[in-house]
């Protein structure tokens, strides 16, 4: 993973270690403190409110998410988010991996594409959605999940995927491909049996990243989604209308959901990594 390490011969830690260590601990507390508060508050008793103190504990607020009525949109929106994120993730892998491979050599126009990706990544998100929404309006098309919203999210996940692929292909040794050619592989065989399998852990990383980026996205999606909301937009709408711990319950649930997805993927990648050993290839 990451190399380095301070190597004091006598094993004693410098004072900076304690300073930075304390700072790191404080940072973690800062990072997790508020989140823990909402996890706890999501188990608020039936008569409790959105702040402490806890008035007993209950699962009322979780149950409310699934009850027909005001909150019934949450499970449906969740389904939409998962569907959109899956498609976004698939397309991102497809195009970003191909582009990452293409960028391994300089070609005329590579600079333009690079800066196009940078621009797309740093563009204020809402403006991207605004532009696409405006375009759809001019063309007389209706904005919807798998047209405008999908497109708006790709302007965010594709550059991310491309930059992630740069890191992945930088570790790729060109000699592997030459060896494959030398041993009689056609270009397709080379891609299928050498390039893609070696890049696989990185590609899974890109897929996972694109999935979470899409799953949590609201700023690009809000003006391109049309009438049917994704989960983040549904939550966004709830913030102004509802002030009950249900919001926190949704937060707890989506966090658990994210953890499950990421945990499973990480385990898979780690198994892949273990299967092929840990050492990095020797560079000559």
């Amino acid at each position: 993973m990451i190399a380095g390490g301070s190597r004091a011969a006598d094993g004693r830690r410098p004072w900076t270690f304690y300073l930075l260590g304390t700072l790191f601990a404080a940072y973690l507390l800062f990072l997790y403190g508020p989140m823990l508060v909402i996890y706890v508050l999501s188990f608020q008793g039936e008569n409790g409110g959105v702040t402490f103190p806890m008035v007993g504990t209950s699962l009322t607020w979780f149950a409310q998410i699934f009850e027909p009525g005001q909150m019934a949109n949450i499970p449906v929106a969740f389904g939409r988010s998962i569907a959109l994120a899956s498609v976004v993730s698939l397309l991102t892998v497809l195009f970003a991996v191909a582009a990452g491979l293409g960028f391994r050599r300089r070609f005329p126009g590579s600079g333009v594409v690079f800066y196009l990706a940078v621009a797309s990544l740093v563009m204020p998100s809402l403006l991207v959605g605004f532009g696409i929404g405006l375009g759809f309006r001019f063309l007389g098309w209706d904005a919807s999940l798998f047209t405008s919203a999908l497109g708006a999210q790709l302007t965010w996940t594709l550059p991310f995927g491309l930059f992630a692929m740069f890191a992945v292909v930088n570790r790729f040794n060109r000699a592997w491909e030459e060896a494959a050619t030398d041993l009689g592989a056609s270009s397709w065989q080379r891609l299928r049996y050498v390039t893609l399998p070696i890049l696989l852990p990185g590609i899974i990383g890109v897929a996972m990243g694109a999935f979470t980026l899409s799953y949590d996205e609201y700023a690009r999606t809000t003006l391109t989604i049309g009438p049917l909301n994704t989960l983040p937009l549904e939550i966004y709408a709830l913030i102004s209308s509802a002030t009950s711990p249900t919001l926190f319950a949704i937060g707890t649930l989506t966090t658990v959901g994210s953890f499950l997805i990421i945990g499973i993927t990480l385990l898979w990648v780690m198994r892949l990594q273990r299967r092929r050993g840990t050492a990095v290839p020797h560079e000559g």
Binding site: G102, L116, G135, L158
Partner: peptide
């Protein structure tokens, strides 16, 4: 290279540059 980069470039062109 352009065959590989083209789809990504085209998407960004249509969905980012045009808007």
């Amino acid at each position: 290279s352009w065959l590989q980069v083209g789809p990504l470039a085209a998407i960004l062109l249509v969905l980012f540059v045009l808007p």
